[in-house]
């Protein structure tokens, strides 16, 4: 049971949602966008979070959609992961999203919630970081569409009150060969110590990583280094190529995470062509 009181809104449009957010903020309140609630409920229950208001985005049409749109596939941010996984368009996304939490939780946990949440893993973003994808963001000035390359750095760069409505992925990149490796402390239903996802293009391997550092990232420096040098050299100078130091916490040491990453790199590189449908 959550003891604190909060107000609850269920707007029908994103415009309404953003207005409510702005209004509440101007009243000095702390609103949160709410969809699946798996993170908000568990954190509020532990008194780690005290929202004054929850703005439920599940009724907003844009956030519920899943459709093909010309060269793109469009995923609404309030889609439960289960729906995202079952959609046939983007095999790597299905594979990666399937590793988050367990089936019962994935029936509630949403794509946008996973990607914009407070936990440091946000694994569902990895496939989007690897493909030419676009973020559709609602703000008080209307809807804007941005390339993920500019919209994401360690996390989505959203102004407070902005709402991620959709993610669009280019069909061609969604169909690229891929491989991914996830490692946990001991048992698959747990946060990742490492989750490395790769896509294979003519110009080389693309790599995105969660669990290793304090945030998920596209490993561009490593991608570049792999083009020019042999694997071993890359593995020996990881510190220079990662965007931050390797995480050390109660789940695992930085040393072990680093070892897992090196093993994963070897495996990803050895796959070369990847798998089209794992």
């Amino acid at each position: 049971m959550i003891a604190q009181s909060f107000s609850y809104y269920k707007p029908a449009t994103f415009k309404e949602a953003i207005d409510i957010f702005g209004q509440l903020q101007s009243e000095g309140k702390k609103p949160l966008y709410y969809a699946g609630g798996t993170e908000i409920i568990s954190m509020t229950r532990k008194e780690l979070l005290r929202p004054d208001a929850l703005i439920d985005i599940k009724e907003i049409a844009e956030c519920r959609e899943l459709y093909e749109d010309g060269d793109y596939i469009c995923y609404g941010s309030a889609l439960p992961l289960t729906k995202v996984i079952e959609a046939p368009y983007f095999p790597l996304l299905s594979k990666v999203a399937r590793t988050v939490a367990d089936h019962t939780v994935r029936n509630r946990l949403t794509l946008g919630g996973n990607i914009c949440g407070r936990l440091p893993y946000r694994e569902a973003v990895l496939p989007f970081l690897l493909s030419d994808s676009l973020a559709v963001i609602g703000s008080k000035d209307g809807i804007r569409t941005e390339s993920i390359a500019t919209a994401y750095d360690k996390r989505f760069l959203l102004t407070e009150g902005d709402l991620l409505l959709q993610l669009k992925v280019d069909k061609q990149s969604a169909a690229l060969p891929y491989h991914s490796i996830r490692k946990e402390r001991n048992g698959s239903v747990d946060y990742p110590l490492l989750h490395a996802a790769a896509m294979y293009t003519d110009s080389g391997l693309k790599l995105a990583v969660s669990g290793l550092c304090a945030f998920p990232f596209r490993a561009e420096l490593i991608e570049e280094a792999l083009k020019g040098s042999i694997l071993n050299t890359v593995q020996n100078k990881l510190n220079e190529l990662l965007p931050s130091s390797i995480k050390q916490d109660h789940l695992a040491s930085a040393e072990y995470r680093g070892a897992l990453f090196n093993l994963a790199l070897s495996e990803l590189v050895s796959k070369k062509g990847g798998t089209v449908n794992a």
Binding site: N186, L193, A252
Partner: peptide, 10 residues
């Protein structure tokens, strides 16, 4: 105990 992969690896 517990026998986590990391403990074994170490």
């Amino acid at each position: 105990l517990p026998l986590t992969p990391e403990e074994i690896w170490k």
